[in-house]
Amino acid sequence: MIEFDGVRKTYLVRGQETLALEVEQLTIERGEVFGIVGHSGAGKSTLLRLVNLLERPSQGRVVVEGEDVTRLAPAQLRAFRRRIGMIFQHFNLLSSKTVAENVAFPLKIAGTESKAAIAARVEELLALVGLSEHADKYPAQLSGGQKQRVGIARALACRPSILLSDEATSALDPQTTRSVLQLLSDINRRLGLTIVLVTHEMDAVRRVCDRVAVMDGGRVVETGPVSEVFLHPRHPTTREFVLESEHVDREEFQESLQHAEGRVVRLTFKGESTYRPLLGEVVRRCGVDFSILAGRIDHIKDVPYGQLTLSFVRGDVEAALQAFAAAGVDVEVLR
C-alpha cells in the first residue's frame, strides 16, 4: 500500500519558490494496477518518483507498506529501494552490459545471492519476459519492445512488491505497447505485484489499470475506478483525455450536435448489457426513432462496454429512457 499524505514538492526557480506538486491524500492499494495520467508537466513523474524517493517531498509524508519513506536513513533507503522495481520510458539499460548482465545488475548490487543463484534467477526472468535466446546480446542489438522487456526483467530481479512504470510504453509503437502492457498485466496477476503506471496515453490506462488518478497542474483532479473515470469523466482534463483516446474531435462533435434534432442522449452499456439487443427492443416498444451521432464498443481492462450518442425523435422518448435505465444502461441526457 502506498499513501501520499499532504505532500508538496517545490523547486527554487531563479530564487522563487515554485510549486510543482501538491497531493493532499492519495492511496494506492496493494495488488492493484494504479494509473497516473496527465499531460507532460502535470507532475505525474514527480509523484511516481516520490515513492522510491528519487524525488524528496518538500513537505508531507509518503508511506509505503506502513513505513514513512522520508524518514529512512541512507542504508535503510537503499534496502527499501530494492523492494521496488522501476521501468523507464527510455529503458535506461546499461549499454556496456549484455542483456543477462543488465538483469543481474540489481542482484549484484544487493549482494545477497551467490553467483549460481543469480545466474539461475536471470535465466528465470528472461524466460518470463520471453528473451531467453537474447541473453548475450547488447541492448543496442534489441528492438524497443525487447529493451523494455529487459527493463521489466531487471525491475523484477529482486522480487519487488511494487513496480513503478514511468511512461514505459511511450517510446513504443502501438503494437509493442499492447504486448508490453499485456506483460505488465500478466505480472500483476501472477505475482500479485502492485503496479503504479504513469502515462499520458489514456489507452494504456484503459487496458491495464484498476484505478486511475488524473493530474493537472501538479494536482490530482480526479480519481476513481477506471470504468467510472472513463465512462463518466467529471473534470475537463479527464474529458479531454477520454475524448482524445476515443479519437473524437471535440469541435466536430459539437457541430454534429447542432445538426441533430430532438433529444440527444448518451447511453453507456457495461458488462453483460453490452451484448444484449436492448436498443432494438426499446425502440420498437416505445415507437421512437433515432440517429447515431457517435458510438464505440471496447473493453476497459476485461469489462466490455459500449457507448452510443443518439438523438431521439418521435414516440415516447421519456419511456424509452426509463426503459434503458431499468435495463441497467447508464443514461445521460446531453440536450
Binding site: N52, R81, H90, N92, I109
Partner: peptide
C-alpha cells in the same frame, strides 16, 4: 552518460561507489 542510467541504478538501491564502478565508469 545518460542521467537516466544513474537514476535507474539509484532506484536499485545502489551506493555511490556501486553507481560509479558498476554503471558510470563502464558506460
Amino acid at each position: 552518460v545518460d542521467r537516466g542510467i544513474v537514476e535507474a541504478t539509484q532506484a536499485m538501491g545502489a551506493t555511490v561507489p556501486q553507481i560509479v564502478f558498476g554503471a558510470l565508469l563502464p558506460e
